[in-house]
């Protein structure tokens, strides 16, 4: 006969279990708090702005009469801005990341570049606005154009793109590079045929993050002088423009309640745009990663 053993929890274990439950509750409260705040914000916006939301609102130019004003110019301006920003920041950011991750040998130059890029990610966006105003708007005489805005935005999101792309490249196993080199591939062939396809989902995620940041930025655009009253849809990158956050900011700063409603409705449009962009990004990412899966 074996000695009977006591499987009921010892006093020490009881304490440990209690701590477990306490921490669980704490973590849950944290998650809940975030959700509640988000829900409250959303509720506030929807209850104020939903009534204003209509095709007419989306398709009208701004007006000094709140009920006739719309976001058409701002929506198109934001769309233009995002596309041009990505066209600039995407290739440059990915190229910079590839250079840093695949082509430099670890050394002082790489270290200096790395520290600078990390620091750039933390620079307040207004600083980029000042740089954009001085350099793109004035010095390069691009004026208050979409191109000047997009170049400024591109600078702003470049660190995000570079850092995310580097993470994605670093996650590609070295054994794949070795296999490629061993078959006689040059470094460029290895990057294009092996590393980039494997890193694509991560890179796309980085681009979405960067774009999400850019679309909500207001300060640098105000700095470079994106107009708040634009009664036309931009036809090219040299046209002047306004963007959703600026339009919202303009409306929200007016005293009339009707304009406050417009601001809330504008926020809803911005949120919807963000959602659409992220969904497209996630779709691309899933496509890319499905190709890699068995």
């Amino acid at each position: 006969m074996s000695r009977p053993i006591d499987l009921t929890p010892s006093p020490a274990l009881v304490v440990r279990r209690r701590r477990d439950r306490l921490f669980h509750a704490f973590a849950f409260a944290g998650a809940l708090l975030c959700l509640v705040v988000l829900a409250l914000l959303l509720f506030d916006i929807v209850s104020t702005g939903a009534a204003r939301l209509s095709w007419e609102f989306i398709n009208s130019f701004p007006s000094r009469f709140a009920d006739r004003a719309g976001v058409r110019a701002a929506l198109w301006g934001s769309a233009w801005l995002m596309i041009v920003t990505m066209a600039i920041a995407g290739p440059i950011g990915v190229a910079a990341a590839i250079y840093l991750e695949e082509f430099t040998r670890r050394g002082r130059l790489a270290a200096i570049l790395e520290i600078n890029i990390s620091n750039l990610a933390g620079v307040p966006s207004i600083i980029y606005g000042i740089l954009g105003l001085a350099f793109f708007v004035r010095w390069l005489a691009l004026g208050r154009s979409i191109l000047a805005g997009a170049l400024t935005m591109a600078l702003l999101v470049l660190p995000v793109v570079i850092i995310a792309t580097r993470e994605a490249l670093r996650a590609v196993p070295g054994s794949l590079r070795a296999a490629s080199f061993a078959l006689g591939a040059s470094p460029l062939q290895t990057v294009l045929r092996v590393v980039l396809p494997s890193a694509m989902p991560g890179i796309v995620t980085g681009l979405i993050l960067a774009l999400s940041r850019a679309i909500g930025e207001t300060a640098p655009l105000i700095m470079i002088g994106a107009l708040t009253y634009v009664a036309f849809v931009p036809q090219g990158p040299m046209d002047s423009f306004t963007a959703l956050p600026i339009q919202i900011f303009d409306w929200a700063s007016r005293p009339q309640a009707a304009f406050q409603q417009n601001a809330a409705a504008g926020i809803l449009v911005l949120l919807a745009l963000l959602l659409v962009m992220n969904s497209i990004g996630i779709l691309i990412r899933q496509r890319a990663s499905r190709k890699l899966q068995p």
Binding site: P173, S175, L176, A178, A179, S180, S198
Partner: peptide, 10 residues
Amino acid sequence: MVFQKPNPFP
């Protein structure tokens, strides 16, 4: 060259 761990490309 064949490596220690199989390393097919994805």
